[in-house]
């Protein structure tokens, strides 16, 4: 599988990871810059806020590099990284939800959707509001569908790469994506122009 590189003569991810493991700080800089955006997008969509997403990215990079033995270099480093970042995000999200439910005192649940449809948006809905709507819609999906959809839509992984990352069958990926899309179209119906 070709390793993503930004320039023709740029070092491959595998080379960079080997150098990072030897303590090469410049290799870490290159590897981090190459993959930080996509890792952050996935983490943000799964967590709904920037600070937590950056924490998940940090945990993800550290775990992806230090547990390369489990990765086995069977897929691309990006696929492996997004898998680890996804797990870190889900773990962090569970901790946050526990804390929120402990301190919420009956307030609105974390990114919850009261009924099957999100609140009707204001006429001049800005980007932040739309982002919040997306966050709420994603939070309303079952975790497997949400993870699969985010890895595809925000992580840019192919169906096969998602199957590798999550350890599921290709057909399961397709089916999860299908149902996730159906549900999201319903939840974001106010923003979706048919």
């Amino acid at each position: 599988m070709p390793r993503p590189t930004s320039q023709p003569n740029a070092p491959s991810d595998d080379d960079l990871v080997t150098r990072v493991n030897r303590g090469d700080r410049s290799a870490l800089d290159v590897l981090f810059r190459r993959h930080r955006e996509v890792a952050y997008r996935v983490a943000y969509r799964l967590l709904g806020n920037e600070a937590d997403a950056l924490d998940a990215v940090q945990d993800g990079f550290v775990n992806a590099i230090t547990h390369l033995g489990r990765y086995g270099r069977k897929s691309s480093f990006k696929t492996w990284l997004l898998r680890v970042v996804t797990n870190a995000s889900l773990d962090l999200g569970r901790v946050r939800r526990r804390l929120d439910s402990r301190f919420a005192d009956g307030h609105e649940p974390y990114l919850g959707v009261a009924d099957g449809r999100l609140p009707v948006p204001e006429a001049n809905l800005d980007r932040a509001d739309l982002r919040r709507s997306i966050d709420r819609a994603l939070a309303a999906l079952p975790e497997p569908q949400r993870t699969t959809f985010v890895l595809h839509a925000d992580g840019g992984l192919s169906y096969q790469e998602i199957a590798d990352a999550l350890g599921i069958a290709l057909g399961t990926v397709m089916s999860r994506l299908y149902y996730a899309r159906q549900r999201l179209k319903g939840l974001l119906a106010h923003h979706v122009t048919p």
């Binding site: 997008r41 943000y44 709507s133 839509a153 179209k185 923003h191 979706v192």
Partner: peptide, 13 residues
Amino acid sequence: DPLRDVWASAPPP
């Protein structure tokens, strides 16, 4: 797919 437009118009900060 209309979801593509929604996603593209509201990327994470």
